Computed example of a mutant assay.
Amino acid sequence: MTRWRDREFRPNPAPAVGTASRTLLRLRVAGHDIVLRRTRIAPGGTSGWHYHDGTLFVVVTRGVLDHPYLERGPAEYPRFHVFREPSGPANAHVARNGGPTETRILVLYLNPANSPLSHSVPPPTDG
């Protein structure tokens, strides 16, 4: 069953700062929750360090996304870049905006049923 969700952007919970999202679509298929969300990241905004239980597919639709990983180091994605976020604690990362204008992303979550969208982890001591 398809359920249309929030029509308005809502601030993301801590540890996120300067970010807001809205859920465009949520449905369950074969034991997986499929969620489509649009997220805005204000200049200086951050998601906080986290990981996901499932795989995500991300499209940067505006600005530049700074997206380093704990284990793999820095990554920066410009507008129209599409990338995959693998699951699990070994793939902990942060999404942040170091630029002067808003960054926007469109995210497709493929999570195990009833999983949270993310799990917070402590930031690395050097970043």
Rank of each mutant, 00 (worst) to 15 (best):
T46F: 08
T55C: 04
E71C: 00
A20P: 00
V64Q: 14
V60G: 05
G54P: 03
L25T: 07
G73V: 02
W49S: 06
A16M: 09
V82N: 08
P13K: 12
G44W: 15
T19Y: 01
R38E: 09
F9W: 12
P43V: 09
R38F: 04
Y69C: 01
D53I: 11
G31P: 05
A20M: 01
E71P: 00
R38P: 05
L25P: 00
L70E: 09
A20Q: 04
N12M: 11
L36C: 07
R22D: 09
H32C: 03
V82W: 07
R26H: 00
A30R: 13
Y69F: 14
R79E: 15
E71N: 07
F9L: 09
P78M: 13
A20W: 03
P78S: 14
I34K: 14
R37E: 02
V64N: 14
V64E: 14
N12P: 00
R72K: 10
D33A: 06
R28N: 15
A16R: 07
L24T: 03
E85P: 03
R10K: 12
A30D: 15
L56K: 01
A20H: 00
T61A: 11
P13N: 15
T46D: 10
I41S: 07
V29S: 09
R72P: 06
R28T: 15
A42N: 08
G63M: 14
A14V: 09
T39W: 04
H32S: 11
P15Y: 10
L27V: 10
G45Q: 05
G31W: 05
F57I: 07
H67G: 00
V29D: 14
V60R: 13
T23D: 13
G54M: 07
D53M: 14
G73C: 06
P68F: 08
L56P: 02
L24I: 09
F83M: 03
F83P: 02
A42T: 04
V35E: 11
G73I: 05
R22C: 08
F80I: 07
T23L: 08
E85L: 02
R26W: 04
E8V: 03
A75F: 04
P15L: 15
S21M: 05
E76D: 14
F57Y: 10
R72Y: 01
I41L: 15
T61P: 05
W49A: 03
I34N: 05
H32N: 13
I34G: 08
L25V: 06
T39S: 02
I41E: 07
R79D: 09
R10T: 12
R37A: 05
E85Y: 06
N12C: 09
T55R: 02
T61F: 12
H50K: 04
Y69M: 05
N12H: 01
R40Q: 15
T61H: 10
T61W: 09
V58T: 05
A14W: 09
P78W: 13
R37M: 03
T61G: 10
F80L: 13
S47E: 10
H52A: 00
P13G: 12
S21W: 08
V82E: 14
R84H: 00
T39K: 03
I34Y: 12
A42S: 10
S47T: 10
R40V: 07
H52T: 08
F57K: 01
F9T: 00
D66Q: 04
A20C: 11
D66N: 05
L36A: 12
P74F: 02
H50N: 15
G18K: 11
V82M: 15
A14F: 07
F80Q: 07
G31K: 15
I41F: 13
L70F: 00
L25E: 06
L27K: 13
